[in-house]
Amino acid sequence: MAASIDAVAGPLNRQSHPTTHVDTNAIEDGDAMLLARIGRGDERALAELVQRHGGRIRSLALRFTGSAADAEDIVQDTFWSVWRKAGRWDARGVKVLTWIYRIALNRCIDLDRRRKVRRAVGLDTVDDPVEPAPGAEHRAVVRDELKAVTADVKALPARQRAAILLASTGDVATTEIAARLGVSEGAAEQLLVRARRTLRQKKMERDAVGDGDRAR
């Protein structure tokens, strides 16, 4: 029997590929104007920029660090940097959002490095995996699987973790992921390949254990 790709696993996961058209140029123009106003000390412009992008920066930091408190700190630090550096910001072909992401990701990676050192010298304990995204709570199996994948993501090396989290939001190409991480496109692709391979292997191991348990 011939099985088509859609028949194999059902419809595509449209959650990660929103069909609504987003005018990225308009967003970028708006961001650039807001940044210019922030550079002149306009707090309302900062509030608007946070309103536009704060949620996604916080989500990324939360999934990256696994800690709501750390995510909050990263958001605060990121927008404090934006506030201080806005007046000196020079686009040079870099989008405002790319720049904000880069600041946030650098904070995430720095924090991760410090955590590793603290853990190595016994000053820090390993965090519990972060709770899965809202909306999945009603299904225990889904929640367990999401928890497991979240833990797998958290166990990835920092840059692979950042790359896969950016890619999984669904609206960014590898070029943009590379720009946000401050690496070449080839390097970003390699980070994604390694991350996907590791996560897939771990999932297959889990599935194999689950199948074995059910067979008994």
Partner: peptide, 28 residues
């Protein structure tokens, strides 16, 4: 199938949340 399921999970995990007014207030 595994790759599809994994991508769906990752999509759910990485889905950006909306910015709440409290976050804006805290940043300011």
């Amino acid at each position: 199938e595994t790759a599809r399921a994994l991508d769906a999970d990752l999509g759910a995990i990485a889905a950006p949340a909306a910015t709440d007014a409290a976050l804006v207030g805290r940043v300011l």
